[in-house]
């Protein structure tokens, strides 16, 4: 079986972030792998353990910096890495990202494409579904449990929906699955995998060689949301804040 895993590099949300002067994208900061994609990779690795001979390839769209995330994907068990290079640091329409990945996927024979349910930075929840629609194959999102694959023709999955419920179904392959966090417990890469990943080549393809269309939505501006007026920031050192908090709790008869 051949699996393509979509991994996105996102800004680390614990770092300080700033918006560029034009207000159209972010600047600076540290980057890491989108957490939902760590679950996607782990799921691919588990499948390769269940089905011998399974190949795992990771693909990422973005500027040169995303290569470090592809390397991490290889440490976690991907045997190959493909970088679809988009030079500029800018907002990408999910249709653009999906079209690039779908165009690339057409060049291989993937039984399964696994993505995260959402990218933590843009939070679209769209790319996997769009890849499937462009390729004309099935898709299931928010996959929280996966069962065995039957003769490489279909896979049993459970989708997480609202109110603590799930929808269970059999999805015909080839298909795209977008995985929800908690589907598995991603393992740390083993030392041997880290060493192996060091020497592996990452292939770079220029985005314009894959697809020449345009995105379907445009980002006009970015801003920090207004902090609501009702919040009071407690002042002073930690002990002063703790004292202030205790008197608030006393006033409200909470303790």
């Amino acid at each position: 079986m051949e699996i393509l895993v979509c991994v996105k590099q996102v800004p680390d949300n614990e770092g300080a972030i700033s918006i560029n002067d034009e207000g159209t994208w972010l600047t600076g900061g540290a980057f890491r792998m989108n957490r939902f994609d760590e679950f996607a990779l782990e799921e691919a690795v588990r499948l390769s353990e269940e089905i011998p001979g399974t190949g795992i390839e990771a693909v990422s769209v973005g500027p040169g910096r995303v290569v470090s995330t592809l390397r991490k994907a290889m440490e976690r068990g991907a045997a190959a890495g493909t970088h679809i290079l988009v030079e500029e640091e800018r907002y990408m329409s999910p249709f653009e990202t999906a079209s690039l990945i779908a165009s690339y996927a057409k060049t291989g024979h993937y039984d399964l494409i696994i993505a995260g349910v959402m990218a933590e930075d843009d939070m679209h929840c769209q790319v996997g579904q769009m890849i499937a629609a462009i390729l004309g194959i099935r898709c299931a999102t928010s996959v929280i449990h996966r069962g065995t694959i039957r003769e490489e023709t279909s896979v049993y999955i459970e989708r997480e929906i609202e109110e603590g419920q799930r929808l269970r179904m059999e999805v015909a392959l080839p298909a795209v699955l977008t995985v929800q966090s908690g589907i598995n417990r991603p393992r740390y890469p083993s030392l041997s995998n880290i060493l192996r990943a060091k020497d592996q080549k990452i292939r770079t393809i220029d985005a314009s060689d894959l697809w020449k269309g345009a995105g379907r939505d445009h980002l006009i501006s970015m801003r920090r949301p207004e902090v609501s007026a009702k919040g009071v920031f407690l002042e002073g050192g930690k002990d002063e804040k703790a004292r202030a908090l205790i008197s608030i709790l006393h006033e409200r008869a909470l303790i």
Binding site: S93, C125, Q129, I161, R216, D217
Partner: peptide
């Protein structure tokens, strides 16, 4: 709605309709 149904369905609908999709 941006629910488990809505975000599952909307992007594919948009691709087939040839339109943009803006979520949440």
């Amino acid at each position: 709605p941006h629910s488990a149904m809505g975000f599952d369905l909307a992007p594919g609908l948009a691709v087939d309709l040839g339109t943009a999709c803006i979520t949440a």
